[in-house]
């Protein structure tokens, strides 16, 4: 049976791991490849690196990051950040990334999803959606944001998710801007709305503070994978603990 995945996310700036809290405060937490290898040994199923280096330097740092990770990582990894077009994406995949994640570039020019999916395969195209609730009540609505959550797009997040899958995205990495950094739990309603709308795997992100949160988003919102940063980076829980906890709750997990 296919297992649910735990994916630690590492924000990387100028080759060092940092973690954004509500996209503003950041703290240094080490070397990306070293940290990634430690996660692999502990049983992480996959890793995501988001390069948050200042945009004018990022085209080079993101390729270098992919190259270094490919040397020493023997689990799948995704690289996101700063890729604007097909040529940027090709360079990062060629450097050894298994998948790339795009957000702003996809919203600015959605055709890039079609072209890259055809050329490199849907399995390596992850579209990241950073969504914020814009209408509460019975019929909640969410809007996708770009540029690290600073710029609204005026679009509907559920519609956008459907569109990216039609265009060839192989996975969706869904971050709730409302819960991100709070450690109060994932956004269950948002995640449910997206998993109901699409037939590709959805990675839930934003808000993990304890292990019950991981169980909850899989069981109640049907997430295929859970992404978390702080709870693992600062040693609150180990990956192994998290996986055993989820398995004990009846979720199929890869235990190593």
């Amino acid at each position: 049976m296919l297992t649910k995945r735990i994916i630690p996310c590492l924000d990387v700036r100028n080759g060092r791991v940092v973690k954004g809290i509500r996209f503003v405060n950041i703290r240094d937490a080490g070397d990306p490849v070293e940290m990634a290898s430690a996660y692999d040994r502990e049983g992480a199923d996959e890793l995501i690196f988001l390069d948050i280096t200042a945009s004018h330097e990022r085209r080079d740092t993101v390729v270098e990051l992919a190259r270094r990770c490919a040397e020493e990582l023997f689990i799948p990894f995704t690289i996101g950040g700063g890729m604007r077009d097909e040529s940027d994406i090709r360079k990062v995949l060629k450097a050894g990334a298994d998948k790339i994640a795009i957000n702003s570039a996809a919203l600015a020019n959605p055709d890039v999803i079609n072209r890259c999916s055809r050329r490199f395969g849907a399995q390596c195209i992850v579209v990241a959606i950073d969504a914020k609730m814009v209408s509460a009540g019975e019929e909640k609505q969410w809007e996708p944001f770009v540029h690290g959550g600073r710029t609204g797009t005026g679009r509907d997040a559920v519609e956008w998710a459907r569109e990216v899958v039609e265009r060839g995205a192989g996975e969706i990495m869904l971050t709730s801007m409302d819960t991100d950094g709070t450690q109060d739990g994932y956004d269950i309603d948002l995640t449910r709305a997206i998993t109901d709308a699409v037939n590709v795997p959805v990675i839930a992100s934003g808000g993990a503070g304890n292990l019950d949160h991981l169980v909850e988003v899989v069981k109640e919102a049907d997430a295929d994978a859970v992404l978390a940063a702080s709870i693992f980076h600062y040693g609150t829980y180990s990956i192994r603990e998290a996986k055993e906890y989820m398995a004990a709750a009846g979720i199929p997990m890869r235990l190593v």
Binding site: M1, L2, T3, R5, Q123, G170, E171, V200, P201
Partner: peptide, 11 residues
């Protein structure tokens, strides 16, 4: 009946 492609860890 499940999602295609299969992506992830399986036994």
């Amino acid at each position: 009946e499940l999602k295609i492609p299969q992506i992830g860890w399986n036994q």
